[in-house]
Design a protein around this nucleic acid. Structure first.
Lengths: 209, 209
DNA sequence: ACCTGAACACCGTTCAAGT
DNA sequence: ACCTGAACACCGTTCAAGT
């Protein structure tokens, strides 16, 4: 996707495999993706990848982990960009996540589990996803401490926010919203719209119990 | 899971295959599930399934479709049980969904896409998922008309509710919440908790713009 | 009409052997 | 140290042939 990458005959095959795998993954979906195919795309024999990845799953996990890192970065960016406005931080981080998902839906699905059991996956993935979650908790925690968000365990509110953005992301990635969330502009609009509901709630006359 | 099912030598193999597939699916995850294995579990040759399903995907789609039907039924039940209380209907429907996901997480993942591109899937699945979504829209629409929910396009609020419950379901199914949402009681609690946030919002001082 | 067995092209993974 | 080629057990799918 970036550089020409030609003579990896003894360059770093590891990265080359990952870079070769992602477009294939996006083109035909996981499950249909074969390690042999990735090897061929990288210009090596079908056995070569095993010198760098223990497993087909190990390759997929690495790709998924990078996805989580992207989300983490989106959180950090949002925090720096909207200091002292936690609500806006939340909205921007969420939209960053959504945009990533629109661009690489199959990679997103890898992150969502299903192929890889996040339950019992390698440390790389477990770490990356935990870090991403922590970044979100940070934002929400800041909002609670600043008195912007309701006083509640930050984890509780974070889970709500995470569920909402993750749910929307999942719906987009699975094509359930085809026709509603096809391009970046529509996704931005949807993200803002849902954030509105998340912040203000659904009720008409809220007695705020 | 229910009946003994012995002599399907010319009974309805179709259902037998589905019933045989689900436990295998739950045991080892999709992708690892092989059609040959399902056939063996059903006591037929590996070629027999092709008389009833065009494809391995066709079998999986049917299973996913049944999952969506379960969600639809959860919506209907909740509507009947809490007439004139749309908020409670929403909560109960959501919890029904979550409980299904805890019990059959791999089937849930099938529904969430990833394996099957919901984008371009068979009519069976497309219909079932559309029906499920419509059931949720019905509940929200009732709430808007009754003045309980904010005045907004029902689809907009529904998408928020759907995203939240679907997101939480996805997190549970992928094992991301292991230790927090392991049994039915914890899931019920989590569901109610998130519903609270969805209904009341996250903000401390809501100016309700 | 429904099922079987052999067959084909493809996989993931392993391992001795090459450079 | 890193890569290759052959090999093994498995898969999805097809198709002639059986009942």
């Amino acid at each position: 996707m970036a550089k020409p990458t030609r003579q990896y005959h003894h360059g770093n095959l590891r990265s080359a495999l990952i870079e070769a795998a992602i477009p294939l993954l996006e083109a035909q979906g996981p499950g249909a993706l074969s390690l042999r195919e990735v090897a061929k795309a990288a210009g090596v024999s079908h056995a070569a990848p095993y010198r760098h990845f223990a497993d087909k799953t190990a390759l997929l996990e690495e790709i998924a982990a990078r996805g989580y890192d992207t989300l983490t970065q989106a959180c950090h960016k949002a925090q720096k960009r909207y200091v002292d406005d936690p609500a806006q931080q939340l909205v921007e981080a969420g939209i960053g996540y959504l945009l990533f998902v629109v661009e690489q839906p199959r990679v997103a699905h890898l992150m969502f589990g299903g192929m890889i059991a996040l339950d019992a996956c390698g440390e790389v993935l477990q770490q990356s996803s935990a870090t991403a979650f922590k970044s979100l908790v940070d934002i929400v925690d800041g909002g609670v401490k600043a008195g912007v968000f309701r006083t509640a365990p930050a984890q509780e509110l974070t889970l709500a926010a995470w569920s909402m953005v993750h749910g929307l992301a999942s719906l987009i990635a699975s094509g359930m919203l085809t026709g509603i969330a096809d391009n970046r502009r529509e996704v931005r609009r949807l993200g803002r719209q849902l954030a509105e509901t998340l912040l203000h709630g659904m009720l008409a006359n809220d007695k705020r119990t």
